[in-house]
Computed example of a mutant assay.
Amino acid sequence: MTTMKRMKTAAVAAAIAAVTAMGSAPAEAVPSGTCDMGYGALSICEYGVTQRHFPGGVEQFIIGSDYAVWTRWHYDDSPTLQWSNWTSLGGIARSEVFLEGERDDGSFITRMTIVGTDGRAWQRVRPRIGASWTGWDLAPATA
């Protein structure tokens, strides 16, 4: 075998080894115990769906198979009562979603809390319907 042929054979063998090694890497596993929430959304079944009515509509929160918080909603005055697309609110939860809502000067403040991977309570706050959520912060301690 000529030197050139040996080099080509070695290059092909190396390429096959590299492809085989890449192909045998484990795929990102979907956690067991997932529920199909429709429209491609998978949730962690044990955490369930947290649903709440707000003035003029309904919203749902789930913990996705990526352990992030996901939400969707619909407004009561929508002619089709069609749900929005699922939207990620991020985070890495190890609990269901807990919600608190209160009226304040005509607004409807929502506090969403989860237990994080560190075992502590984390929250995001939405100051009124239609407003943006705050970033994740440690939830204040309760008595």
Rank of each mutant, 00 (worst) to 15 (best):
S95C: 09
S88W: 07
S88N: 07
A17Y: 06
V19N: 00
S84R: 08
W86V: 03
T80F: 10
A93M: 05
V97E: 04
T110V: 13
F98V: 07
G57R: 08
Y47Q: 04
Y47C: 01
D105K: 12
G40K: 11
R94A: 05
E59I: 03
I62S: 01
A93V: 06
I109A: 07
A15L: 14
E102I: 01
F108W: 15
R52N: 06
A27P: 02
D118R: 10
I63L: 03
H74I: 05
A13T: 13
F98K: 11
A93T: 04
V115C: 01
I44G: 02
A27I: 12
R103W: 08
Y67T: 04
T71K: 11
D104L: 08
F108N: 10
I16K: 00
D105I: 00
W83A: 00
V19S: 08
W73Y: 14
G101Y: 05
T50R: 06
T80E: 14
I109G: 03
W70Y: 14
E102D: 09
T110D: 08
C45T: 12
V49S: 00
W83K: 04
P26K: 10
T117E: 14
G90T: 09
T110S: 14
T110H: 05
P31I: 00
N85D: 14
R103H: 11
I92M: 12
R111H: 10
V58N: 10
W83F: 05
Y75D: 05
G56N: 06
G106Q: 08
M37L: 10
A25M: 15
R103P: 01
V30Y: 00
A41P: 00
T50Y: 04
A18L: 15
S24K: 01
R72N: 10
G40E: 05
C45E: 11
R111E: 10
R72M: 07
I16P: 05
H74M: 11
S95G: 09
T80W: 12
F108I: 02
E102N: 12
